[in-house]
Amino acid sequence: MNAQRAALKAAFPHTIPVLTGYLVLGAAYGILMNSKGFSLFWILLASIFIYAGSMQFVTVSLLAAGFDLMGAFLMTLAVNARHLFYGISLLKQYRGFGKLKPYLIFSLTDETFSIVCSAGIPEQVDRKWFYFFISLLNHSYWITGSLIGGVLGSLLDFNTKGIDFVLTALFVVILINQWQSTKNHLPAIIGIVSAIVCRFLFGASNFIIPSMIMILTLVTVARSPMERSNEV
């Protein structure tokens, strides 16, 4: 019990930026669903079980476009393909986590992944509970936000324009921390350059999968020199 409390205490500060971002974006999702005539039941269902911000917004436009299950399935795979990279990156890190592991996998998001792969854990804190609370706290912020949005709907009308930048800021800070933690900056450069190049080539809504392919290719080509330098 104490181990869990210590893990929760260590995990919470890392999730504060996500708390802000998820409450607001979750509320935006709840408001949107509410305006389309969905009850709290559907909002809750989506936020608990899909739990993928951009996908949930896409869901609304998919439904507006017409009933097409196969199309929806393929679109879901495309929008969420980046999760594959998170899973691969965490294969070793999540090994041996037993009964907590399914939930850790099920609740992987951009933000949870970025914290899990970068947060320093105090030595006396149990890793698996630390990751569990990062995941659970973030998940609960998202659910809470979407419920608030769903209940209050358009009554919620204070000016939050730009607040989602808190998540951009989170990734920027993690990028800086990663940059300073290693002498080998090639992976970071590959990630940024691939994404920028593909953003301009393929446009804002279709560039993530091309970026992933480009990253995989470049990282594979650079494998032997990078393993030789052994500074990763």
Binding site: R82, F85, Y86, I88, S89, D110, F113, S114, C117, S118, T168, F171, V172, I174, L175, Q178, T182, N184, P187, A188, I189, I190, G191, I192, S194, A195, I196, R199, I208, S211, M212, I215, V219, M226, V232
Partner: peptide, 12 residues
Amino acid sequence: ILPFTIIGMLVV
């Protein structure tokens, strides 16, 4: 290697 590339991708 991927974690170091993905965060950059996420910023973009």
